[in-house]
């Protein structure tokens, strides 16, 4: 059976690439250092493909209907230009055969994953990949979760998806090496009077649960509480929770954390997971 050779969770805020000079230099350096450490780990562990668990920011239409979790099923995906991120259009290679098999396997495991041939990528993918795979030379299998607009899937469903994804990886050829990358915030508010604020106490609580692998504690969070305490952006934590389901028991190690970069309207974190 194939092996998950590295697992990491990173932020994907667009101003890391769109307005890097607006951050205090010592804070920005911690962000670059976090990404660089994880880029190196990704390179050194030589995965054949990476599963990227993320969300779009209502870049793809949410009408006429929504799938709470969507798998990209195409040979590659392109990104949209974003004023906030200022990245060139990316064409990100994927693996259509892996994706097709993943879809069947996850359905068999009892999770009704949606799929799309035409998934547009935004900073949820492009910002992390800009840092982690700058040559865009690693096939990326994309899952987008409905995060940016309600109703949203419960955290437990996101975790269960992770378990189904792990089961799929175990069915892959024995020599295959897989990386898992989850992207998204910690606390942040988007598009309202609180945009720019963060909640470091909430961030730190989440990071401690990742270190201790207190998954039940994280899964006990309610959507209303997440939004009130950590902002509408913090619903992205469900991407990290899906990753937890793929690597049960693997303790999180915080590689980098910055509590507040006001001009980026976020905190930042880079977490790796210690695998057996």
């Amino acid at each position: 059976m194939a092996k998950i050779v590295c697992a990491m969770a990173v932020i994907h805020g667009p101003r890391a690439t769109g307005a890097p000079e607006t951050a205090a230099p010592e804070k920005a350096q911690q962000v670059w250092d976090g990404f660089e450490a994880l880029r190196r780990e990704l390179e050194e562990t030589s995965p054949d493909w990476a599963l990227l668990i993320t969300n779009d920011h209502l870049t793809n239409p949410f009408f006429p209907y929504v799938a709470p979790m969507v798998l990209g099923t195409a040979p590659s995906f392109r990104s949209v230009p974003e004023e906030s991120a200022r990245l060139p259009e990316m064409v990100v290679p994927s693996d259509e055969a892996v994706s097709a098999q993943m879809l069947d396997a996850v359905w068999e495991a009892g999770v009704d994953l949606g799929y799309s041939y035409d998934l547009l990528l935004d900073h949820g993918s492009t910002v992390p990949l800009h840092f982690l795979t700058p040559r865009l030379d690693l096939p990326i299998v994309h899952i987008h979760q409905m995060v940016s607009r309600g109703p949203r899937p419960p955290l437990q469903r996101c975790y269960t998806l992770g378990g189904a994804l792990r089961q799929f990886v175990e069915k892959r050829p024995a020599s295959e090496r897989v990386a898992v990358i989850a992207t998204g915030g910690l606390s942040h508010w988007v598009g309202g009077p609180q945009m720019g604020q963060v909640n470091p106490a909430w961030d730190q609580w989440v990071l401690r649960q990742l270190e201790a692998r207190a998954d039940a504690e994280l899964l006990s969070m309610q959507n209303a509480d997440i939004e009130e305490q950590a902002g509408n952006g913090a619903h992205e934590i469900r991407n990290w929770i899906t990753l937890l389901g793929t690597v049960p028991g693997a303790p999180g190690e915080v590689v980098s954390y910055v509590d507040h970069i006001p001009s980026w309207a976020q905190s930042t974190a880079h977490v790796r997971f210690r695998l057996q």
């Binding site: 920011h57 209502l58 004023e83 906030s84 940016s148 607009r149 508010w189 988007v190 598009g191 309202g192 009077p193 609180q194 945009m195 720019g196 509408n232 001009s263 309207a265």
Partner: peptide, 28 residues
Amino acid sequence: YRLGANGYLLLRFAHEKGGDFRQIVAAM
């Protein structure tokens, strides 16, 4: 915002007028 419009879309709609998020937030 008070009516409950989605924050991400509000930001995009506001950007049609130009300006970065801090100006938009200040207005709110």
